[in-house]
Computed example of a mutant assay.
Amino acid sequence: MKTRNGDDIMGKIHLEGADNARDLGGLKTTEGAVIREKKLIRSNRLSKLTQNDMNLLSNEYHLHKILDLRTPMEVEQEADLEIPEASYMNIPFFMESMVGVSREKETKKQMLHMQEFPDMKDIYIMMIQNKFCNQQITKAVREVMTTENGSVLWHCTEGKDRCGLLSAIILFLLDVSEEDVMEDYLKTNKAAIRRVEKIRKKLHVAGFHQEKIEKLEGYFVAKEEFLNAALKTMKEDHGSINQFIKNGLHISMKEKQQFKDKILE
């Protein structure tokens, strides 16, 4: 997939209050079909949307459903703005206690003083192997699959990890190739490049060693090794990504085909 022009990212939805929102429409499957536009939207937090943003999502994308994958504490501290005609569901992929660190404002400050914090690869593996995580992912996938009359949007805080994993699973359900799934996952870095540069400079000025800066960066940038850790776990534990979807998430091949029939053209 190539950018349309300059720094523009294919499928990017230009929102003033969410810099990592994009439409998965236009992506091709391994069978040559194309995902319909204005059906599947991935994003980062929706707490800073402007009135123009909400009008765009309502009027142009006919937003019908919002799936918030953040923890209850994250939601409490920075709630989504309500968008007319769009239902809202909080489906946290994990709880704070499961990882030790999430992106609450207090914890962000604490991260800078921690000697040890979770490795992002371990968090991706946990989301594949943990029973609670699997149940929540299944719930979110089914909500995406059963959306009618408009679009469904899912998001976490940065639009990278929880959002990225759900996006990957949705694309695999539609039979998009691993290469194109990874390419979509890494587009987050183009959207967030200015934000990440600011974080790097702050950490450098604060006197952090390069090794720790690189590890902390993992909380704000998408890396192939993170998603690959999840894909490898799916394959090792279930035999294939399709088998993970079938046996790990309990999505039948009949349900998968029905979803494809609805979303692909």
Rank of each mutant, 00 (worst) to 15 (best):
I35W: 01
I35P: 10
I35Q: 05
R36D: 07
R36W: 04
R36S: 14
R36H: 11
E37G: 15
E37H: 13
E37R: 13
E37V: 01
K38Y: 06
K38H: 15
K38R: 14
K39H: 13
K39P: 06
K39R: 15
L40H: 07
L40G: 06
L40S: 14
L40Y: 01
I41W: 07
I41E: 04
I41Y: 02
R42A: 01
R42P: 02
S43V: 00
S43Y: 00
S43L: 08
S43C: 05
N44I: 07
R45M: 06
R45T: 07
L46N: 03
L46G: 00
L46M: 07
L46Q: 09
L46T: 09
S47H: 05
K48H: 11
K48A: 08
L49G: 11
L49D: 03
L49W: 08
L49E: 02
L49A: 08
L49F: 06
L49P: 02
T50H: 02
T50C: 05
T50E: 09
T50Y: 02
Q51I: 06
Q51M: 09
Q51Y: 04
Q51C: 04
Q51A: 08
N52Q: 12
N52K: 14
D53H: 08
M54C: 12
N55W: 00
N55S: 11
N55H: 13
N55A: 00
L56V: 04
L56T: 11
L56Q: 07
L56R: 01
L57K: 09
L57Y: 09
L57F: 12
S58N: 15
S58E: 15
S58C: 13
S58M: 14
S58L: 06
N59K: 12
N59F: 08
N59W: 09
N59T: 13
N59A: 11
E60A: 08
E60Q: 14
E60V: 12
Y61A: 01
Y61N: 03
Y61V: 03
Y61M: 00
H62M: 02
H62C: 02
H62Y: 14
L63D: 05
L63V: 05
L63C: 12
H64I: 00
K65P: 00
K65W: 03
K65Y: 10
K65E: 10
K65M: 13
K65G: 03
I66A: 01
I66S: 05
D68Y: 00
D68W: 00
D68M: 11
D68A: 05
D68H: 03
L69E: 07
L69N: 04
R70D: 07
R70S: 03
R70L: 04
R70H: 02
T71I: 09
T71F: 13
T71K: 13
T71S: 15
